[in-house]
Design a protein around this nucleic acid. Structure first.
Lengths: 122, 122
DNA sequence: AGTAATAGTAACATGCAGGTAACTACTAAA
DNA sequence: TTTAGTAGTTACCTGCATGTTACTATTACT
């Protein structure tokens, strides 16, 4: 038996682990360097491969197609191939993908505030 | 000049990049495999090193001290050394660290729903 | 004196996330 | 027929983010 200084109800510890697990689950799907940025980008509407490539600065073609494919498997994104001309593939969020929106906007909001804090103290 | 199928106002593209930048800023501070879990854990109150080690399952001692140190530098976490007995160091979120709470809970919430979706379809 | 617990640090090892560059396949325009 | 623009894929390579293990220092208990 362990005794900690601050006994802490087993209840709160369970709650804590539960919450950590949920966060972990989310990060399992949304993790990686680019997925969240891609979703953020697609929240502004359906985009083509090259559009995303241009808007998500720094991402390489390989990573973009890789992440998109993963997100398609997870039903976050839908891929549509337009009837040729010069091919045209467009990507859009599924309804499920849209459900990530609150996560993104909370995160973006915090990031925004954080940037202000940092630049203020420099 | 590029012509895209869906012309998309430059306005929305700017907005999009702006939002991506904010998300990126946030992930710069909260990124890494463990920080979000640690914060989630500390949202339930101040904890000692070994408590966190136990509650954030899978984390190694090295990573824990490393991530905690980084978060201290970023003013997300406060470290307090108790006057000995067997030493006792406790960590708690700063007010600034608490401001991440909405992010965590939105994420946890989504993770929770996601888990339900996955287990349902299996 | 020896053991255990706390909170770490240091040295070493490694896998995989991610980058780069070259290549394909299709179409259209010059 | 050569160039350019789409949307990728493939092979190769590298570094860093982590993991593992062993070690320290302090105090308390037996």
């Amino acid at each position: 038996m362990q005794v900690t200084t601050k006994p802490e109800t087993p209840h709160s510890s369970e709650e804590c682990k539960h919450s950590i697990r949920a966060v972990h689950d989310a990060m399992y799907v949304l993790g990686g360097k680019w997925k969240i940025s891609i979703i953020a980008c697609l929240l502004f509407g359906a985009k083509r491969y090259s559009d995303i490539l241009r808007e998500v600065e720094g991402i390489s073609g390989k990573m973009l197609s890789r992440e998109l494919k993963e997100m398609e498997v997870n039903f976050l994104v839908k891929r549509t191939v337009g009837k040729s001309q010069p091919v045209m593939v467009s990507y859009e969020l599924t309804e499920y993908g849209e459900s990530v929106k609150p996560v993104i906007s909370t995160l973006a909001n915090w990031g925004h505030i954080h940037r202000k804090c940092v630049t203020k103290n420099s």
